[in-house]
Amino acid sequence: MKNNKVIQVEGLTKMFGDFTAVDAITFDVKKGEIFGFLGANGAGKTTAIKMLIGISNPTSGKATVAGFDVLTNPNDIKRNIGYMSQRFALYDDLTVKENITFFGGIYGLSRKRIKEKSEALIEELGLENVASQLVGSLPLGWKQKLSFSVSLIHDPKIVFLDEPTGGVDPITRRQFWEMIYKAANQGTTVFVTTHYMDEAEYCDRVSIMVDGRIEALDTPKKLKEQFQAESMNDVFLKLARG
């Protein structure tokens, strides 16, 4: 059970000229964990993620994701992770089925497998009646749930979610989190980046980045105790104001 840690980061640093965007961050994420990666805009979250998913090389430090080194095996990493962002998720001008087929194809699933997956997925989300409709015509909440399922289509070890639930109604949001809990329960690691602090409350553990460094890392419960705060929002405010 040596490799219980699916993400291992040690002293990971990224410099742009004189500017240190990510400053020697170190953390681990366990299998099946829901890990919240928080920080204000410009704190270095995006730069850090880019290094973790193998599209940007670190200046120094080490990181392995899904067992692969970010510097030497970025392509293996890409095959083993899923990604969902609030800004881009699905093609609005393709139907539900076409989207599923397309993303299944990208990850090299066989036609038979795609067919099975897409039937299972449509049934699970209750999308039978709209399976042949354009995704653009669906309500936002449905799109987000579909988008999450599609990011899991190739059974990735880790799924990265970028501000997944912004703007949806509270009930849909809960349904979305139930899907995340389910995926985590099945052993998928969920890595959530967000600057909405109430979303952080749902994570098993959260890290908070300020100016390129990780300033706090623990369970939401312990962080709230440590900072004597009522909510993660207050924790963040106390941290950011020094």
Binding site: E178, Y181, P220
Partner: peptide, 20 residues
């Protein structure tokens, strides 16, 4: 996850919502 599914299976539940 088990907690949510169990609560939803509970016959007397009125509402079950994850909340942080």
């Amino acid at each position: 996850y088990q907690l949510i599914t169990s609560l939803k299976d509970y016959e007397f539940n009125h509402s079950v919502y994850p909340f942080g």
